[in-house]
Each structure stands twice: as structure tokens, then as C-alpha cells.
Nucleic acid binder design. Structure first.
Lengths: 347, 347
DNA sequence: CCTCCCTTGTGAAACGTTTCATGCGATGAC
DNA sequence: GTCATCGCATGAAACGTTTCACAAGGGAGG
């Protein structure tokens, strides 16, 4: 039905061989300008559209890179996407965004398809980090992969991350300093590295200074946070909550408010990511800020570099530092107005 | 380097012809089970991965559909993505998410690439709706396209939309009923249909009952809303603002608050989309709710249907009704806590 | 006039599948 | 014992590119 017009038709129409048409498309400088023009005209008249499958088949690989995120719905990741797209665009590469939805099965299926498409490289925040995951297989078979927002360490790939342990620690130190002695960490599942590391960070920071309890969540969404709120004071009369990300924090904030618990007077909250909506929340949210777009940009740059250095490539691990942004949700109770320093971030 | 293993190697290893291997992959019932097993083993041992380019080349089209959104960063669209993915997954189709970022150039480039890839169909909220846009060309050449969140009308394609005029009217009626007589509409650019229709809706609703002024924005982001806030009272001493979407509304809310203008006491705000964060905002936001996931789901269903009915297909236009959710930001100025939220100057 | 080189253009081979007409041995009907 | 039938496997022909070795024509240098 649709485009049945191939390079062949174009060739006939322009009165040249198909090799010449191909040259016009790929190495125009090899073709005499009069011929070139004739071919170009034919292309325009016929509405010819290159067939990428054929091209890829010949080339052996595609011209796109994939970005597999944990949750498209999470503003943190959409910002990462933006960064990645920006960097990719500069190199004329297209980014395919895939959403694993924190589901190992979907991640697996996406990787299957991507490998079948001979994707040029993959940026991923994996759900499944087990040593014989689908991802490992992909890497082992030779597809360049850059881990986004994930652990350093492994030497078989590049990674871009933010120091989550430090982030957790910043939050912990801040809360202890504010006088909190019973703190609850909300987040899960523990299979997600960030969750573990942020927990480890606050754990280290409060050790010996405050008690830390945990309310696990099945995932990192607003709904999960809302549900977790119910267990928060039951969990040990905590006066502060540190959430594994801002979505959960927003949910906790809603849940607590709904139960008549005041934030920050009764319970302080600190989130993580400092998404744009954190500052606009009912009670502006203290949060650990990550350079989200930067993360995407850098990851893409690393990936493209690795693809470039086809021969030998030295894997690198870039680690960014998080920054604690204190807002009302964890301000010193009662002293509502000392030095507000929050300000919506510009862009 | 990477996977040099083709169907051919598998065939040799299993001691069968390549046709048989292909049959095992595509119509296993045609192959004797002993042979089948032998082939399957060979595949596993060699780590064979199908080459999708070759497959597509033969088939003439890919097995994916694309979803081109205006702004991945907008929770409205991420929810649409989720809906689309859910529906697609049920049919074993993969969704490629592309972000035009409200930029006609990027939209154009994405469509170029998608057509080169012989994408099976496209779901799109177009930036460029001019009659000889890149999109029209795509449609004209035979790629099934479903418009998402866009006008009914055209007969050359299906569409799924929410009645934006009605949405605007609901907001307008509500504000008038609340006693507002000077209302400002914030949003832009006018080239975006939703902006025009929502404006038309409120326009119609308030005609003769209140004065409506407009503060245009260059796009529909929080930052744009924040910037627009500066012009709001200057624009005519409005006591209410209707924003083209929730991001803008959130920005306006921040901007007004920062200037010491209280919401809703001094100025009421109504947003659009009812994204998850609207309810969690500093002042919970009244908003016009749209069935976001449903939109994605339905659009995908229509697209798959059109692809199915390869022969004749009747284009359909599904229109959902929006619903006004009233929250504090436009509630009748009750005397809640005489909240003094006059706030910090950003730094 | 012969060589050599340079510029343009050509034709055919490959890329890895799917599909289709065909082959071939065995089974059952007559 | 012959013939149609069935079940399974085969080989070759596409699919639309890119690439590469080579040919044709034309100047320039000798």
C-alpha cells in the first residue's frame, strides 16, 4: 500500500544506476552536481523515503540509542530524558525512551527487543541488577551500556551516578541537627540500589544520635507514600521522615496531613530528587537535589564516546554530589521564619 | 565484534536448513518436535538473537508504534504514555516515545526518522497542525495516525480528545459563580489548539458576566507560569486566573505567593489537567480533570484497530468529557488560617 | 600517439530474514 | 501394487540498501 518507492525507482526516473542514487544520499561529493540535482529532483517528485531497515541490515547496527527508565511518570526521570535527548541531538542520534515501570519483566522484554533491533547503545537504570540478568547478557554480547544513577564499581561498563550515600547522610545530619531523635525512613523495595544507599547514608549519619526505623514501600510512587503515612507514627513515634524520593515524600505529606498530623510541627519531612514539584508542595519540601539533566547529558556523552572508541575504551564512573535543599517541611518547628532560603529553581 | 551469529549458523549447528530455523521461530507447529528441540538448543547455545532489521526489511514495516508527545516533562503526557503502553503491551507491540518538546523542528525530525523506520503507526499530539505539515505528508503516504488530545473534525484520521471548550467553560462558570468579575487567562502559545479552545471555552462562559483578559506565555511550563504571575494584576486587577494547564497554574501560584498575593483570598486559580501534583500543591489546586491514561489507551486501541483493518477503515473521533475538580485554590475565600505566606524573595 | 591519472558512473555482491514452490519418504485407500 | 495424501524439510527468491572493484571518457604530460 504505502511507500513502494525504492531507490530503484528513483534511479530509473533520474536515469542513473542505483549505486549513484545511494551515493547522492550518502556521499554527495562523489557525484557530479548536475547528476546530483537530477537525482534530488527525482527523490522529491517521487516522495522517496529511505528504508532504514535495509540500511541497518547492511550496516549491522541501528543509529539509535535507548534510554530505559524506571518510571516515566517520575519527574526525576523525565528530566534525565531531557538531558539525554539534548546531548543525543547534538550528535544526530535518536533516543528511544522505554519505561520499565520498575518491573523486571518489562525491563527484560524491552532489552530483548532492543537487542533484536541492534540498538547502538543503552542507557539504563536497571530494575534487575542480579549478576546474570538480561542486562548482563546484553553487555556480555557487546552492546555498550551506561548505567544511569547507579553504582560505581563494576568495570564492565560506564556509569553516571549521584552519591546516594552522601545524600542520605546530608538528610540525616540535617534532621539530627534539627533535634530529631526518632526518624523513619520510607521507601522500597530494597532491591533498588538507590533505596539501599540512601538508607545506608542516613543510617550512618544518625548512628548513635537518633533511632532510625523503616517503613518499606512496594515502589516509589505518591500512592505508596500515601499508604505508608498510616504506619509512620505507629513505627515508633518518629518526629521526622526521610523518604527515598520526592514522590513518596509528597504522598507521605498528603497522608499525614489527612490524618491531622502537621508538617513540620509534628513531623518533619525530607525528600529526595528535588523535583520541580517539591518546591510547590503544600508544605514546600526539603529535598536532596540531584543534577538530573546533567545526569542524562553525561550518560549520553559517555555512551557516545564508548560507541566511538570502537576499539579500546576505558570505562569511566562519573559521580555527582547531591545538595540538600532545606525548605519548610523540615524547618525548625515553630521558628517558622528565620531564614527562608528556598527559591524556586530557575531553569 | 558483537553478534555475528545468524540464523545460518544456527542452521548449521542444528544440522537443518535455514528455512527450518525460520519456521521454528515463526510457525513452530510446522516443525517436528524433535527437530524443533534441536534447533532451540542450538539457538540457546549460540546465544542467537534475531535480527529485526532483516525481518522488517522482508515484512515491509516495523512492529512498533510511536507516541510523539509535546513535553515528556509534563505529567499529563507521562500518564498518556502509561495508558498507551498498557494497551500496546496487551497486543505485543512496543511503543517508542518521542518528545517534540513543543518544537516543530524536532517534531519534523522525529517524523522523518519514524517514517524511515516504517513505523507501523503514530500517536501524536502535534505541534505543527498546518495543512501541509510533515504530519500531513506522513498520513498522505499511508501511515496510520491517531491524534491525541486534538481536534475532532478532520476525516483523514482518528482522534481522541477531551472537550477542551467544555473544560474552559466549566472553569469559567465556576469562577463566575464564585463571584469573580475580572478573570485572567494565562497560557500560550496560541498556536496550540488546546490553548485556543480552553480560552474559547472560558470566553464563552464568562461573556457578559465578567471581563476576561489574557496573559500569553511562550509555552506551558512552570517557569512560564512563574513569569506570567508578574503581569497578572497589572493586567486588570483580576481576582481569578484560569491557566491553560497545571504546570502553568503551579508556576502562577508560586509567582503570586512570592509577591505576597494570597491564593485564593486575593486571587483564585484554576488549572487544567488535574495532574497528580495539583492536589499536593501549596494551595491545593482546582483543576479540570482529564482521563489521561484513558486517552492513551483509547488512542492506542484506535490505532491498532486501524492497522488491523488494513483494507477499509472508518476513522473515528472519540471525545471525552472533562470534569471540574474544585479545591482550595478557587474555593470561596473562606477564612482559613489567616495564612501569612508572604514569602521569601528567591535568591 | 601513448600512458597515466582523475572524475563519474556502473553492476553485482552482500546483509539476515521470511516465504513459497517443491522434494521426498512414509502412510493409507483402493 | 499404484496413487493420492500427508508431514516435514529444503533451497532459492525476494526485501532495499551500501559498498567495492571496475569501466568509460577526458585531459595532461611525455
Amino acid at each position: 500500500m504505502s511507500t513502494t518507492t525504492g531507490i530503484k525507482e528513483v534511479a530509473r526516473r533520474a536515469g542513473v544506476s542505483i549505486g549513484t542514487v545511494s551515493n547522492v544520499l550518502n556521499r554527495p561529493e562523489l557525484v557530479a552536481s548536475s547528476t546530483r540535482q537530477r537525482v534530488l529532483d527525482a527523490i522529491a517528485e517521487l516522495g522517496y523515503v529511505r528504508n532504514d531497515s535495509a540500511r541497518q541490515l547492511r550496516a549491522g547496527h541501528s543509529r539509535q540509542i535507548a534510554l530505559v527508565v524506571l518510571d516515566v511518570t517520575n519527574p526525576f526521570f523525565t528530566d534525565v530524558v531531557r538531558g539525554a535527548e539534548a546531548a543525543a541531538e547534538e550528535h544526530g542520534v535518536m533516543v528511544v525512551v522505554c519505561n520499565s515501570g520498575e518491573d523486571a519483566g518489562r525491563e527484560h522484554r524491552h532489552l530483548d527487543l532492543l537487542e533484536e533491533q541492534r540498538v547502538r547503545g543503552v542507557l539504563i537504570t536497571p530494575v534487575d541488577e542480579s549478576p546474570n540478568s538480561r542486562l548482563e547478557l546484553l553487555i556480555q554480547r557487546g552492546t555498550p551500556v551506561v548505567l544511569v544513577d547507579r553504582g560505581t564499581g563494576r568495570h564492565s561498563r560506564c556509569s553516571v551516578a549521584v552519591d546516594d550515600v552522601l545524600g542520605g547522610r546530608l538528610a540525616g545530619e540535617h534532621l539530627v541537627e534539627q533535634g530529631h531523635r526518632r526518624i523513619t525512613f520510607v521507601g522500597g523495595p530494597a532491591s533498588i540500589t538507590q533505596v539501599r544507599e540512601r538508607h545506608a547514608g542516613i543510617s550512618a549519619a544518625v548512628a548513635g544520635k537518633a533511632e532510625l526505623s523503616v517503613v518499606p514501600t512496594p515502589n516509589l510512587t505518591v500512592a505508596a507514600g500515601r499508604a505508608a503515612a498510616a504506619e509512620i507514627d505507629a513505627a515508633a513515634g518518629s518526629t521526622a521522615v526521610f523518604c527515598a524520593n520526592d514522590l513518596v515524600a509528597l504522598g507521605v505529606l498528603q497522608g499525614l496531613t489527612q490524618r491531622g498530623i502537621r508538617v513540620p510541627q509534628d513531623v518533619a519531612i525530607v525528600g529526595y530528587d528535588d523535583i520541580e514539584f517539591a518546591a510547590a508542595a503544600a508544605v514546600p519540601l526539603s529535598s536532596v537535589r540531584q543534577p538530573r539533566e546533567q545526569l542524562g547529558r553525561t550518560a549520553t556523552a559517555l555512551l557516545l564516546e564508548e560507541i566511538e572508541d570502537d576499539g579500546r575504551h576505558e570505562h569511566r564512573h562519573v559521580v555527582f554530589q547531591p545538595e540538600l535543599i532545606v525548605r519548610e517541611s523540615s524547618g525548625r518547628p515553630r521558628t517558622r521564619r528565620p531564614s527562608q532560603r528556598d527559591s524556586p529553581k530557575g531553569r
